[in-house]
Each structure stands twice: as C-alpha cells, then as structure tokens.
Write a protein that binds this DNA or RNA. Structure first.
Lengths: 129, 129
DNA sequence: CGGTATCCACAAGGATACTG
DNA sequence: CAGTATCCTTGTGGATACCG
C-alpha cells in the first residue's frame, strides 16, 4: 500500500511558496510531486491539494496531460468511477530539473527572504522619510 | 565594448515560449539572460525586450531587485541620468538551475509540442464524433 | 534618460452548486 | 467518484500619455 500524501509543502505558508521558479501553472509542480511515488486518484490528489478547487485541479491536470507529462486512465468503469493519473516518462524526466531548481531555492531561500525584507524595509524607510 | 543584445529568443514565436518552466514573472528569465554578460542600462534592456512596456519592465526589475537577484545603480547623476542593472552573486547563481531547465526544455520540446498537438487533435476528434 | 500615472483587457484562479 | 457549470474576483500584464 502506498503512503498517503504529506501536506507540508502544500501549506501556503511553506517557505517554498517563496520560490521564484515556477513549473507550469500555479499547481503543476505540486501535482507532479504528488505523482512522484506512483499513480494517484483524483480524490487522493484533493487531500494534499485541499486549497485547490476541483475545477482548477482538473484544469491543471488537463494542462499536464496535454503536455504529455501525465496520463489519465479510467479503470474499472463498471463499478464506481475510478480514474488514475500517472507521470509519463516525459513527466518523470522533469523531476530532475525540478529537483535542481528546488535545491537552489532551498539553498538560497534565506538569502531571498533577507533580500525581500531588506528591500521592503528600505522602501518603507524611503516613504517615511 | 560589450556586445549588443540579441533578440532571437525574445521573439514570441521562439520555441522556448513553449517552456512550462518559468522563473519569476513573465519576463524575469529573459531579463536575467540579458544581464548574463554584464551590467545593462534600462534603455539597453528595452531593445531586446521591445515587447515589454516600460511599466512592466520596471515592475519586473523591481521584483528581481527585491529578491536580491539584481542590483540597481545610479551612476554619474550630474550629467544625464544613467542607471545600470547588474546580476548579484545570488542572481548569477540562478543561471545554473535556469540552464538545467532550459536544457530540459530544449531536449524535450519536440516531445512537448507533439504531445500538445496530439492532445488537441484528440479533443477535436472527441467533439467532432 | 529612466522612469510614473492612469486606465484597461484578459487570463487565471476561486466559490458554490450541481451531475453522469 | 470524478468531475462540470456558472458566476465572480483578482492579478498580471499592456496601452498610452506624461514627468523630473
């Protein structure tokens, strides 16, 4: 049995939300990471991506499917509807540049945060004086 | 004398516009590449980025500055106004993950394009039938 | 030269309710 | 279960004109 999806980095307050590097639309990178360990159902994806409405989640999934990064499969349609999403080889190959970008963010995010704070402080200072 | 900036990849029809990986806002990656070979003036940046209005270019530059990725320097203010933008060490360090992502896109962009075409064709087919 | 100011268009995302 | 439909809000970017 596969592990349930963790929701740490899906928190809007997660430092990675600082990330200036984006993959696809707003949720694409998170979706890809959700699929990293194997296929997932729509409802499974909705758990960690609870902040994403079904409409938007569908949109993002379609866009990823369109780019050949994931596949959508309808399984066992006779019983209750069962749909699984899974990374393609192409989608899986994207994990590498994503990891590189994530590592960069992780290594530099305190610098980024400090820079932002300093910039915002300087701006406030400008406006005050 | 430094070389003038080329505008190839700034064409909206450039294959790299397919890129699902984005750095910062719409123009951030291009700006960073413009600064790769040294500092540039506002008006110099406007040449290759001719599709970007001054307002938006300023916005993007401010965002990059805020994140500590570039610096803004006012030089020789007594004569005509002279402002230069330059990559910081932090900004320069971003070139590496950017290169990785660009290489991935370059290697896979035909697959991406094919996938999109196939997807769009299938959708049309669905609707027709 | 290096921007701002003002107004505007459109796409992306979201809320809520409903369906095969 | 796996979405759609509808309507709405926001954010991003753009057009145009003007300023120190």
């Amino acid at each position: 049995m596969r592990e349930p999806l963790r929701a740490d980095m899906f928190d809007e307050l997660c430092p990675s939300s600082l990330n200036p590097v984006r993959f696809g639309d707003k949720w694409a990178a998170l979706i890809i990471r959700c699929l990293e360990d194997g296929p997932r159902r729509f409802s499974e994806l909705r758990v960690p991506l609870s902040r994403v409405t079904p409409k938007v989640l569908t949109q993002s999934l379609r866009a990823l499917e369109r780019d050949g990064l994931i596949t959508r499969s309808v399984l066992d349609a006779r019983a209750t509807l069962h749909v699984e999403y899974e990374l393609t080889a192409l989608g899986r190959s994207m994990l590498e540049p994503m990891a590189v970008a994530c590592a960069w963010v992780e290594q530099h995010w305190d610098q980024l945060l400090n820079a932002r704070e300093a910039y915002d402080r300087a701006i406030r200072f400008d406006h005050a004086g």
